[in-house]
Design a protein around this nucleic acid. Structure first.
Length: 490
RNA sequence: CGGGGAGUACCUCAGUUGGUAGAGGAGUAGCUUUGGGAGCUACAUGCCGUGGGUUCAAGUCCCAUCUCCCCGACCA
């Protein structure tokens, strides 16, 4: 029986990643538009769950949503020197409209600091207008040379927070507050542990004075930058003349921040939890948390089983769970099991004639140990108070996934002190999180990258990575105050 | 943007020295089935990526171009 197969991770991780996305019907290459993807309903539903939770967190921290134009005048992009240097190679530019060449060309937004800077200068005149706390859910476009579905596509969806403050201290508080929001979201909702840290100058956002990030550990040992938060200083304030009068009547430029996460998070989710059987979703992000598969042979069994299945579905929905009752007649139960497992549904409930007798149901979690006969272990739960017991199972599964991801990261993380060990750790396809000393120079950073393909993902913040201790640079032997995080990255 | 590979049915692919386009799966209809990927019968399914060229004749040969995949460089 030829069934579409998922390439095992051990054989080819990149193929596995693409197979999981195809088999779970998350997304596909647009094909007709270079480097762009179509996010299919199941993939988009996951993004919507992410959006809903993040949006709540943004509002709880005082931000309001707005929406700015997709097209940005080229002159805007050019106003901030570092910004234009960073983004110029990736811009898609609109040269014609209405059948005529445009007097001033537009680029399709690669990010919105410039156009938002323009409007901030109109909206802000007094310290009373500050802080200005804006978020935008939008699509952006960056003309990437090499694309990977969800991880790096020409067009992607994201949110970009943009804020303006009266003091640098206040802006920096915002930068770190939002970084923490991202880290909390990753841990609590995605069940994905992250390392919070500061980017080196090389990796900093074009136009920022400091970039902080959350870095996640993928199953193959590579790092994925999963969110960034930038201290823009007064760079854009000066470029767009965003000034305010303080309480003493003095004029000053605002201090700005920006921060974002994108549909890349869906890729992060896949490479954190999924396995050779397909997608694995943490319950808090699963568009379908529970699927019910009814089982019957004869018509009279069917009626009784369906009646019970509908009742259970309604009860679970009343308890706030997202439930799918798979009542398709044309498909046998086994085929349904495989399909919903590929799609990552955390819990399956099977209900058949035997269960009606015993007033219980069979449950199987998406990741289950094998029983004595090598079959995935199933649990029997009584029908009474099923919502409670299922809710508990899902909570435990969410915790299990986080702990498993944390353990995997711990197993793939080391602190190294010699160049021999360090370069061996990144030989061939090897990667992992390596904490090592660095002399703080861009030259050394580049030399290490060229020799090992590992880069400095971040300078971990306090509480992330090993405790600070002085040492000697892994490459040059120069003194170093603390270890930094090295890894290959996506 | 450099190096490699590939585009033929919805999917995975076969297609010989150039001679009327194929298989398996999926799909549709019917029957039979249902506690871990069922079976039989019938029916559909094509701008052979696109554009040019060579030829009596091109999926096949030549040129160009687009897209995807892998490995780098560049980047969320």
């Amino acid at each position: 029986m030829a069934v579409a197969k998922i390439t095992p991770k051990s054989e080819d991780y990149s193929r596995w990643y693409q197979d999981v996305i195809a088999q779970a019907e998350l997304a596909e290459q647009a094909g007709v538009v270079k480097g762009c993807m179509v996010i299919r309903p199941h993939g988009f539903a996951i993004w919507e769950k992410m959006q809903a939770d993040l949006d709540r967190r943004f509002k709880e921290t005082g931000h309001k949503n707005a929406c700015f134009p997709l097209l940005i005048p080229m002159s805007f992009i050019e106003k901030e020197a570092d910004h234009v240097d960073g983004f110029a190679p990736e811009l898609a530019i609109v040269t014609h409209a209405g059948g005529k060449p445009l007097e001033e060309q537009y680029c399709i937004r690669p990010t919105s600091e410039t156009i938002i800077g323009h409007f901030f200068s109109k909206w802000i005149s007094s310290h009373r207008d500050l802080p200005m706390l804006i978020n935008q859910w939008a699509n952006v476009m960056r003309w990437e040379l090499r694309t990977r579905i969800f991880l790096r596509t020409t067009e992607f969806l994201w949110q970009e927070g943009h804020t303006a403050h009266a003091t640098h201290a206040e802006a920096r508080e915002e930068v770190y507050r939002m970084l923490q929001v991202y880290a909390d979201f990753a841990r609590e909702i995605m069940a994905m542990p992250v390392i919070c840290g500061v980017k080196t100058e090389t990796e900093r956002f074009a136009g920022a004075i400091e970039t902080v990030c959350i870095e996640a550990y993928m199953q193959d040992g590579k790092a994925l930058q999963s969110g960034t938060s930038h201290d823009l200083g007064q760079n854009f304030g000066k470029a767009f003349d965003v000034q305010f009068q303080d309480t003493e009547g003095k004029r000053d430029f605002v201090w700005q921040t920006s921060w974002g996460v994108s549909t890349r998070l869906v890729g992060a989710l896949i490479m954190t939890h999924s396995d050779d059987d397909g997608l694995v979703l943490p319950p808090r992000l699963a568009p379908i948390q529970v699927v019910i598969v009814p089982i019957f042979k004869k018509a009279e069994e069917r009626a009784a089983v369906m009646e019970a299945a509908c009742r259970i579905a309604a009860e679970l929905r009343d308890d706030g769970l997202a439930v799918e009752l798979d009542d398709r007649d044309e498909m046998k139960p086994g085929a349904k099991y495989y399909e919903w497992e590929r799609k990552g549904v955390p819990l399956r409930i099977e209900i058949g004639p035997r269960d009606l007798q015993s007033q219980s149901v069979m449950c199987k979690l998406r990741i289950a140990a094998a029983d004595e006969r090598g079959r995935p272990k199933k649990l029997t739960l009584p029908m009474a108070d099923l919502g409670l017991s299922v809710g508990k199972l899902l909570d435990e599964f969410q915790d299990f996934l986080y702990q498993r991801a944390l353990d995997l990261r711990a197993a793939g993380s080391t602190s190294l002190d010699t160049w021999e060990e360090f370069s061996a750790a990144f030989e061939d396809d090897r990667s992992g999180f390596v904490y090592a000393h660095w002399d703080g120079t861009a030259e050394t950073e580049l030399a290490i990258k060229q020799e090992t393909r590992a880069t400095i993902r971040c300078l971990p913040l306090e509480g992330h990575g090993p405790a600070p201790e002085p040492g000697k640079c892994i490459k040059t032997g120069q003194p170093s105050e603390r270890r930094v995080l090295f890894a290959k990255n996506y």
